[in-house]
Amino acid sequence: MTGFDNRRMGGHALPKDAPPFTTLVHLTWEEGRIEHRIRFGHPIYQRTIDRRSRVVGFAPNSVFAFVRWASNDYGTVVSRIDILRAIGRGEPCQTLPFVRPGGDLLLKLHGWPKVERVLQLTDTIEALGIDPADAAPAYWRHVHNRLTAGVEPRLYSGDQHNAWLARRSIMP
């Protein structure tokens, strides 16, 4: 296959034309069966493999949400959301299916009630006029910890976001 190398991702070879140090995510859409999609984030690379699948890539340090859902004849079998920070060269990372090489995992939840709550919190952040990809990574860790413990997470606020932006502007 021209344009691809022999390493594999989601059953497909990885594209050779992706920018260096890009975190690649294999997305699939099969109506009523499989949905792997990006909920938020800003891909810098995209390549269509076929009518049901494509690969998107994220620059180091960018944050994105990867939603996976699947069903069979008996109902939903997978419902999960992962929020990751794309890693730079040589950084340690957690590996995930369909994500190469992996990422800094900020949130990892499964089960529709928890996934739905994260999607609602994402909508709330957007309602503030804030891109969820720009929200403080610590907030996504907070949401992960609280929902894992069965406790309602605090809402993200404009003040919290401004504090994150100020901190980020002085961090190396």
Rank of each mutant, 00 (worst) to 15 (best):
N162D: 12
V56C: 07
G111M: 05
P137M: 01
L84D: 06
R39G: 08
I125P: 01
D50W: 07
D123C: 01
V77K: 10
R37L: 10
P101L: 07
R89F: 15
M171L: 03
S157Q: 02
H26T: 08
R7L: 10
I49T: 01
T22V: 06
P19Y: 02
S169G: 04
Y45H: 00
T48P: 04
A133F: 00
M171E: 13
I87C: 08
H110K: 10
L165E: 14
E31D: 12
L119R: 08
L121N: 00
I125F: 06
F98K: 10
Y156E: 02
D134F: 04
I44T: 14
A138M: 06
P101T: 06
L84W: 00
W69Y: 14
L84S: 04
P113E: 08
V63W: 00
K108M: 09
K114R: 15
T122M: 05
D159G: 05
R146Y: 12
W69C: 12
F4K: 10
L105W: 01
L107T: 08
G41A: 08
D104K: 10
V78E: 15
L105G: 08
H36Y: 12
P132C: 04
R8I: 14
R146P: 07
H142T: 09
R85S: 13
L96A: 09
S53E: 12
V151T: 15
G3Q: 11
S169R: 09
R117T: 02
P97H: 14
E30Y: 14
A166C: 03
A149E: 11
G158W: 00
N145F: 00
L14V: 13
R154Y: 04
I87A: 02
P43W: 07
K16N: 15
A138G: 09
E30N: 15
G158M: 10
G32A: 09
Q94H: 10
M9I: 15
A166K: 10
N162V: 05
R33G: 10
G75T: 13
F40R: 03
S79G: 08
G41L: 07
R68W: 05
H161M: 04
V99A: 03
P153K: 03
T28G: 10
R33A: 13
P172K: 12
L109C: 02
Y74C: 10
R7D: 12
M9N: 13
R154E: 08
P153H: 11
R168G: 00
R168F: 00
